[in-house]
C-alpha cells in the first residue's frame, strides 16, 4: 500500500499529510499532526475518546481512514477555545467538575460542542442520549451532564443578550 498525500483542513488550517490509505484518522491526527488531544480508548468505535468533528458531524476518528478524510474539514479539541481563554464548554467542565482523569474529556467536549449545535437547548435526557457514544470511567456522567447543561444555558443567555 503506497503512501499518498491527503489534504485536510484541521482547526482552520490546511494540512497535507503523507499516509497510507489504511491509516486511521486518529493516527494521522496524533502521530502526524501532533494533535494529541483526541485519545484512543478502544479503536472499535465504542468509547468516543477519539471523537472529532468532520464536515460538521461528530465522528470517531479511530474508525475513519485517512483516505476518507481527504478534503475534509476537521475540528479537534485543540480547535476549541484558545490559549488565553477556555471555550464556554471547557470552562463549564472545570466549574462543575465534569472531569477527573481527563482522558475522555477532549472527546466528550468535542461531542458536546456538536450536540449543542444540533440541539441548542437540550433536556437532561437529550444530553444523556446525545453523549451516549462517549464513555467515561471516572465521573459517573452526572457532572458531565451538569456541565453541558450549564454551558448551553450560558451560550443561550449570551445569544439573547446579543439580540
Amino acid at each position: 500500500m503506497g503512501k499518498q498525500i491527503y489534504k485536510m483542513t484541521v482547526n482552520g488550517q490546511v494540512k497535507e499529510v503523507m499516509a497510507e490509505p489504511r491509516e486511521l484518522l486518529i493516527y494521522v491526527l496524533r502521530e502526524k499532526l501532533d494533535l494529541t488531544g483526541p485519545h484512543v480508548g478502544c479503536e472499535t468505535s465504542h468509547c468516543g475518546a477519539c471523537t472529532v468533528e468532520m464536515n460538521g458531524m461528530s465522528v470517531k476518528s479511530c474508525t475513519v481512514f485517512a483516505a476518507q478524510a481527504d478534503g475534509a474539514e476537521i475540528t479537534t479539541i485543540e480547535g476549541l477555545g484558545d490559549p488565553d481563554g477556555l471555550h464556554v464548554l471547557q470552562e463549564a467542565f472545570k466549574e462543575h467538575h465534569g472531569l477527573q482523569c481527563g482522558y475522555c474529556t477532549p472527546g466528550m467536549i468535542t461531542r458536546a460542542h456538536r450536540l449543542l449545535q444540533e440541539n441548542p437547548n437540550p433536556t437532561e435526557v437529550e444530553v444523556r442520549m446525545g453523549i451516549a457514544g462517549n464513555l467515561c470511567r471516572c465521573t459517573g456522567y452526572q457532572n458531565i451532564v451538569k456541565s453541558i447543561l450549564a454551558a448551553a444555558a450560558q451560550i443561550n443567555a449570551a445569544k439573547e443578550a446579543a439580540e
Binding site: R30, T36, H39, F93, G102, Y103, T105, I109
Partner: peptide, 19 residues
C-alpha cells in the same frame, strides 16, 4: 476548590504515556 488540573485537560493538553 476548583481543580487546577482541568485547564490543561479540557484543552487536550494532558500528557499521557501515548502522547
Amino acid at each position: 476548590r476548583k481543580r487546577v488540573e482541568d485547564a490543561r485537560f479540557t484543552q487536550g493538553k494532558g500528557n499521557y504515556v501515548d502522547d
